[in-house]
């Protein structure tokens, strides 16, 4: 590797696999903190998933269930769609704010690390990539757990309530579609929450690395 004297070039790279590795390690070294941030996503997503699953179970039962169950369902089926949407959006909004907060703290805490990376030649985009990847990993992991908890809980409750019918009438393929949709929502809100902190981190100047204790 030769340094041509006097000629400044511009090619600096950070392969995605390496970025992925760094992000993953950053999460692992702050394991409990990551778990707390992730649990926010888990709860929001579990709530969303439980509502979708409840709707699906009810739909199945209303279409194919016994008359007795249909009657009882029609009585309780008062919770309007508007109210559901309102609750779900609120919980997801809280989720985004929680992620933004946690990521902002992480950025302030890691000013020296970010400054050092920039001194070593990292571009703004590398830093942004690292933080977004971190959030994406958290979002993906949290959403998977959230989906499992959300639908698992609702299915168990309905099994107890209505027995085998809850499962035999369950629209399984539609359910799979919702699972994927919820996973995507989880990842998207995690990235949304990290956008601002990541751009703050990217804007930090390399001289931050020299800053002594605040």
């Amino acid at each position: 590797m030769v340094n041509e004297s006097g000629r400044v070039q511009r090619q600096i790279v950070l392969p995605l696999s390496k970025a992925m590795e760094i992000s993953f390690k950053s999460l692992r070294i702050r394991f409990w903190r990551s778990i707390i941030t992730t649990s926010g996503i888990v709860l929001g997503i579990a709530f969303l998933m439980s509502i979708f699953t409840t709707n699906l179970v009810n739909k199945g039962l209303l279409e194919k269930g016994t008359l007795e169950i249909k009657m009882s369902l029609e009585e309780t089926e008062v919770e309007s769609a508007a109210k559901q949407i309102w609750l779900v959006s609120l919980s997801l909004l809280v989720c985004v704010v929680g992620i933004t907060n946690a990521m902002l703290m992480s950025v302030t805490e890691r000013y020296r690390e970010i400054g050092t990376m920039k001194c070593l030649g990292a571009l703004d985009g590398f830093i942004r990539k690292l933080f977004l990847l971190e959030s994406l990993l958290q979002g993906l992991f949290g959403s998977m757990i959230g989906v499992l908890i959300g639908c698992g809980f609702v299915i168990i409750v309905n099994l107890i309530k209505y027995g085998g019918q809850a499962v035999s009438t369950f629209p399984f393929f539609e359910f799979l579609g919702y699972m994927v949709l919820v996973l995507i929502i989880g990842v998207v809100i995690s990235i949304m929450g990290a956008l601002f902190p990541a751009s703050q981190a990217a804007k930090m100047v390399p001289a931050e690395a020299m800053r002594s204790e605040v």
Binding site: N3, R10, G121
Partner: peptide
């Protein structure tokens, strides 16, 4: 520019 500066710092 930013890219050249990063290159300078790196290399």
């Amino acid at each position: 520019d930013a890219y050249e500066l990063a290159w300078l710092r790196c290399r």
